[in-house]
Design a protein around this nucleic acid. Structure first.
Length: 568
RNA sequence: GAUCUCGUAGCUCAGCUGGUAGAGCAGCACACUUUUAAUGUGCGGGUCCUGGGUUCGAGCCCCAGCGAGAUCACCA
């Protein structure tokens, strides 16, 4: 138990008083409402009998009448509490005591009454009946907004907002909308795939070999099997096994886990949608992807134009297509298409792109692209035909064996999707994995492991297939105008909070402190037995009785002799 | 992991050259029957992130730690 602040103590006292009055602050019965607030406001009419529920978010008390705001999941409405409307008879306790004294901002209440419009033109509810549905014991931050929509005292500290997302969702406008948008984006995507007849599947999160991507995995241990298991870094190799098994198209919203840095674009767990479709190639997949994004933008915003920062991004298909080598030529002036590794190294030096000895030709090209080109692609652009070294799961380009049939979709200067014509030649695949092992030995810690079962599956034959993965979190960021991944994850990873262990009331009890006093000692400034015994008995005696008087505690005052007895 | 910045009341923030901790909102009390960032009067509320150090004296200076943010590295 933490030490209660004054405001928390006052709310607990109100809670007890409600119980003493026979009001259950946490009633069990369902409270069926007549309207969601948003829909009530949407076609607002006067004189409609309504029953609403929600949190009390503000109160403006003026003697016998008060205004408050009720917040439900859909919106806010003003409620008018008039003493004589709420309390028809002589007994005015419901207004004078329950509403004015015992309710607080943040409490859940139900109201029944009739709609009307105030003199200032505000749609409101004249409250005839009030029900307490759930008392809040902690004060909610009060965020206020003036006529111009200017926000005061917003709850802004990112640490507190992410740790206490429940508070963030209640008091900060727009937070809920972001997460509703996230779900709608996912629904739109799922609908698109289902309409094409592709099957949503689930593949293992716990994997014996962390394959399908180059990343550092989380390791755990399975006791019964006594083996290490890895949290998946990708699901690609499993989905391709399903294509081997005969599905035409499979997709999965895959929570992936990577044991790497955390910042405003990286969370240890994140969501990627991956889809694999048989008998298709990456040209088909580009068209499929751009149409998907156009649909998502339309479903979410009703237009393909999405504002983001200073830009407006247009998801209208088709998107521009540029080969990686052309992109490099476009943004650096160097044509590296005919160059060998030393030649490209020289270009890196001239461009002041940082490289090291472990990097192969492909990696060098990727570095140039990442440093000099990536950031320039604001409007959706497909970058195609990547070097073979950095694409070990991708089929060789039909016209150039040094390249692969791969594209990445760049939007707003970052990659949001990645796709291949998948490699289905098992012998080539085995050699590519072995090349990865050589890179690993050279020091490239991003190189991949060899998944023998995956190779076996390919040896049974996989139809030509195209696969695409899209970062769901980043897509949501783009479509909601957020610049940090923490804003689109309900519960982003944070360092665990340190909790006060709390005062040890039992140790006070052992000293002989009366039962009724135990809970008040920490509030009065004594959090441990040691702390108490360090002070003089006379000081303790005065401090505790002073606390009793100040807080009007309904317990007997302590005698000095009683306090002295604790010291023996 | 590195560098920089920040951590003060429930929330948002001031706090001078080191000299007894402040404001607004929220809370409590009183007044007020159509307000809307309601208003007026009064009153409470603090481990100044934690632990050391310097000093007669530390919210402020120094050291260490914890947490967060920004930049970078790695990654998507």
């Amino acid at each position: 138990m933490h030490i209660l602040s004054e405001q928390e103590r006052i709310r607990r006292e109100a809670l007890n008083e409600m119980r003493n009055m026979g009001i259950d602050p946490y009633p069990a019965a369902a409270y069926d409402v007549s309207h969601a607030i948003k829909s009530l406001l949407h076609d607002f009419e006067e004189g409609v009998e309504v029953k609403l529920s929600g949190r009390l978010m503000s109160r403006r008390i003026m003697g016998k009448a008060s205004f408050g705001e009720l917040l439900d999941s859909s919106g806010r409405i003003q409620a008018y509490f008039n003493r004589d409307e709420l309390c028809i008879g002589e007994d005015k306790t419901m207004y004078n005591t329950v509403f004015k004294k015992l309710l607080d901002i943040g409490d859940f209440i139900g109201i029944e009454g009739a709609t009307f419009t105030t003199q200032t033109g505000e749609p409101s509810v004249m409250v005839k009946s009030l029900t307490v549905l759930g008392k809040a014991l902690r004060p909610l931050p009060v965020v206020k907004k003036d006529e111009d929509g200017k926000v005061y005292d917003a709850f802004t500290d990112p640490e507190l907002r992410y740790r206490m997302r429940y508070v963030d969702l209640v008091v900060n406008e727009g937070v809920k909308e972001t997460f509703i948008a996230r779900t709608r984006i996912i629904q739109s995507m799922r609908e698109y795939f289902n309409n094409h007849g592709y099957l949503e599947v689930d593949t293992p999160v716990l994997q014996p070999i962390p394959g399908g991507a180059a990343a550092r995995p989380f390791v755990t241990h399975h006791n019964a099997l006594d083996i290490p298991l890895y949290l998946r870094i990708a699901n690609e190799l499993y989905l391709k096994r399903l294509i081997v098994g005969g599905f035409d198209g499979v997709y999965e919203f895959s929570r992936n886990f990577r044991n790497e840095g955390m910042d405003r674009t990286h969370n240890p767990e994140f969501t990627v949608m991956e889809i694999y479709v048989a008998y298709k190639d990456y040209h088909w997949m580009m068209a499929f992807t751009e149409q998907m994004l156009e649909k998502i933008a339309l479903d979410l915003h009703g237009t393909t134009k999405v504002p983001f920062g200073d830009h407006e991004i247009n998801f209208k298909a088709p998107f521009r297509r540029v080969t990686m080598l052309d992109a490099i030529k476009e943004h650096t002036g160097y044509d590296i298409s005919e160059m060998d590794e030393p030649g490209i190294r020289e270009v890196c030096r001239k461009l002041e792109v940082e490289v090291n000895e472990t990097m192969g030709k492909g990696k060098l090209i990727d570095e140039i692209f990442g440093e000099k080109c990536e950031g320039h692609f604001i409007q959706p652009t497909f970058i195609t035909d990547y070097p073979i070294e950095m694409s070990p799961l991708c089929k060789r380009h039909r016209d150039n064996p040094e390249l692969t049939e791969r594209f990445e979709l760049m939007v707003n200067g970052t990659e949001i999707a990645n796709a291949y014509t998948e490699l289905n030649d098992p012998i080539d695949q085995r050699e590519r994995f072995e090349e990865q092992v050589r890179l690993q030995e050279r020091g490239d810690d991003e190189a991949m492991y060899i998944d023998q079962d995956f190779l076996r599956a390919l040896e049974f034959g996989m139809p030509p297939t195209s696969g695409m993965g899209i970062g769901v979190d980043r897509l949501v960021m783009l479509l909601t105008g957020k610049t940090s991944i923490q804003e689109v994850l309900l519960f982003p990873q944070m360092r665990p909070e340190k909790w006060e262990t709390g005062p040890d009331l039992n140790s006070f009890k052992a000293l002989g402190v009366p039962e009724q006093w135990l809970e008040h000692l920490p509030a009065a400034g004594f959090t441990s037995k040691e702390e108490l015994l360090e002070a003089k008995p006379t000081a303790v005696h005065q401090k505790l009785n002073g606390f009793r008087k100040k807080n009007k505690l309904d317990i007997p005052a302590l005698l000095l002799e009683e306090v002295q007895a604790w010291y023996n």
